[in-house]
């Protein structure tokens, strides 16, 4: 019961954060709304029993990536004229309609899931111990490759953002 109330609260705030993200004019507010949304997603992971991912979600997404976004926005020092107008153009109205149609389609598709008869085999515990063991046995190769990806991203980002002499 507590879990249910928690789910509805977290889901509502995650969606409100998403709505704020796509509607507020200032980029800083957009990032703050995104942080709300990502925190609520971490809570949803907890209600699903994925404790490890909830912690990683807060550290990596709500922490590191969003701080990076805030840094970049402050670094770029955008002026008032960079804020967007919010008038309803045909393109925007079309985008909203497309979004609603897409959502209806997805919900309809998910509604047919019980008919597939895939059995429930939970409950699930995403504790650190079994996941860490799997990471260093079955998923050892991708785990090592991820470090290469991160190193490449690091060097690539420095090369791209560096000031080039014209």
């Amino acid at each position: 019961m507590v879990n249910e109330i928690l789910f509805w609260l977290l889901a509502a705030f995650a969606l409100l954060g998403g709505i704020g993200l796509i509607t507020s004019r200032s980029p800083i507010y957009c990032v703050l709304y995104a942080i709300v949304s990502f925190f609520c997603l971490a809570g949803l992971f907890l209600t699903l029993g994925a404790e490890f991912l909830a912690v990683i979600q807060i550290i990596v997404y709500a922490g590191a990536i969003m701080v990076l976004f805030l840094f970049v926005i402050m670094l770029l020092n955008l002026s008032e004229e960079d804020m967007e107008a919010r008038d309803m153009t045909t393109g925007r109205a079309f985008a909203y309609i497309l979004g609603l149609v897409f959502l209806a389609e997805l919900l309809y598709a998910f509604g047919s899931f019980p008919e597939l008869g895939i059995a429930y085999t939970g409950p699930f515990t995403g504790k650190v111990e079994p996941l860490g063991e799997q990471l260093l046995t079955q998923y050892l190769f991708p785990f090592e490759m991820i470090s290469v990806v991160l190193l490449a991203a690091l060097m690539g980002a420095m090369a791209i953002a560096k000031k080039h002499k014209a």
Partner: peptide, 15 residues
């Protein structure tokens, strides 16, 4: 919830 969040992200990219 996942579908709704994805939809919000998609609309955001478009608008």
């Amino acid at each position: 919830v996942s579908a709704a969040l994805f939809m919000l992200g998609m609309v955001g990219v478009l608008i």
